[in-house]
Design a protein around this nucleic acid. Structure first.
Lengths: 242, 242
DNA sequence: CCCGCATCTCGTACGGCGTACGACTAGTAC
DNA sequence: GTACTAGTCGTACGCCGTACGAGATGCGGG
């Protein structure tokens, strides 16, 4: 029945009516509207007014679609250039990443992608380049970049887990009892004083942690941790003695 | 919510073929064997030789089961006591967390829990306590603890994403082309030299980053960042001048 | 002209998932 | 006995990703 009715319809031109980019766009739209849980192949297709299985011509599977979404969104927010000073450069890169995740909370559910896209490479390249003026070995520069990346990712994730609306996060029933019983006096001090919690939030927490890490990197830069191997770029020798 | 232990007026427990703990045990067993993707209520029930819906008497829903699993596993690996020296104390705590995630990779898929259980509270309490000898304000101690937590979480997650088997992670097709085209010379240097990558792996990366962060905290401790407010515990005044 | 052929769309179906609902059973209290 | 309750579980609903293959459309060559 449905077949006869469908066959009766006049010529629709399915020729190139759907493109890969449209699929990715629709997925991003859906993610922004309904979050990660609201994304499904059926919903994407419905949003496009298209059969579900039509998507699979343009995209191998859901996994690949998520890869494309990730690259699209991350690529939309990369720094064009960074200053020469490594400290402000790294801080800018870190803040850009923070902004990215803050603006797209669902990104954290998408991020566990084993395949690195172009934008990730660009980010790494940019970060390494930003450390050129440090006068450290390649290995040490990699360490600096990695520790910063890890910190930002972890910070964003922990924020994502505990929404940090000034109010301490929800506690399990057992945890509430133990807290009321006075088993955690130090934490109780925070929970009792909302201003303490609030002061840490409001993105102050991120900046403080960022400063701590940059200080730690600076220790490596100024102290004698540098190996005087050939890995150092000429003309960038430190002036401070070891 | 389960009606398990409430209204124990007629104090008897006659029907005890299945218990809450058994359900959690089975879930953990399944997670260890098949990973996060292999966990489902049906499988847990099957593993217990029990009807699927029987689980729901002891557990509200899948979400609560995951909460319990998380608390169980994390609780199994907490430090009993930590040394007085804040630096080694924090390092030990961080390494314990790393070990925890390394030993239970699926934990990272379970960790996004909005509800903090007892063990998380214990961890926070322990961390704050470990910073007692720093002579910093409460806020600064919280910053130190948070930045370390965030780093560990991010490090573990990024490792989870890119399995780090000495070999650089998989690249998307487009990324490979761009790399071959010489668009990322700095990264290419790493990819070309497997030893560089390898040297960073093998858990050396974690220790290096950890040292950087501890150095950064130490900067805050030794420099004049301390506010001489009443938040400082008596008898723990710093000796160094501000 | 028609005919293959590549390109693209999509209906149907399968096996999985979490869980709402309510029937059923067994043990206790009266 | 009857009444009640704690605990078990079969069935069903509405989701999900996607394998399969049939159908539609345009194009180049006979």
């Amino acid at each position: 029945m449905s077949h006869a009715e469908r066959a009766r319809r006049p010529a629709r031109a399915p020729r190139v009516s759907l493109t890969r980019d449209q699929v990715v766009d629709a997925a991003v739209r859906l993610l922004e509207r309904d979050g990660y849980a609201g994304l499904s192949m059926r919903r994407v297709a419905q949003d496009l007014g298209v059969g579900t299985m039509s998507l699979y011509w343009h995209v191998a599977d859901r996994e690949e679609l998520l890869d494309l979404v990730f690259d699209r969104v991350v690529g939309a927010q990369v720094l064009d250039e960074v200053p020469d000073d490594w400290r402000t450069a790294l801080a800018q890169i870190a803040r850009a990443a923070l902004r990215l995740y803050d603006g797209n909370p669902w990104l954290l559910d998408v991020v566990p992608r084993p395949t690195m896209g172009v934008v990730v490479l660009r980010h790494i390249e940019q970060s390494i380049a930003a450390t050129a003026s440090m006068g450290l070995s390649f290995d040490e520069r990699m360490t600096a970049v990695s520790v910063l990346d890890d910190y930002v990712l972890g910070h964003v994730l922990s924020r994502h887990i505990w929404p940090s609306t000034g109010v301490p996060p929800a506690l399990s029933e057992a945890a509430q009892q133990r807290l009321a019983a006075g088993d955690f006096p130090l934490y109780a001090a925070i929970a009792a004083d909302p201003s303490a919690h609030e002061s840490y939030e409001a993105s102050q927490g991120f900046e403080r942690g960022l400063a701590v890490i940059l200080d730690g990197i600076e220790v490596a830069v100024t102290s004698g941790k540098m190996k005087s191997g050939p890995a150092i770029r000429a003309g960038h020798r430190r002036r401070r003695h070891s």
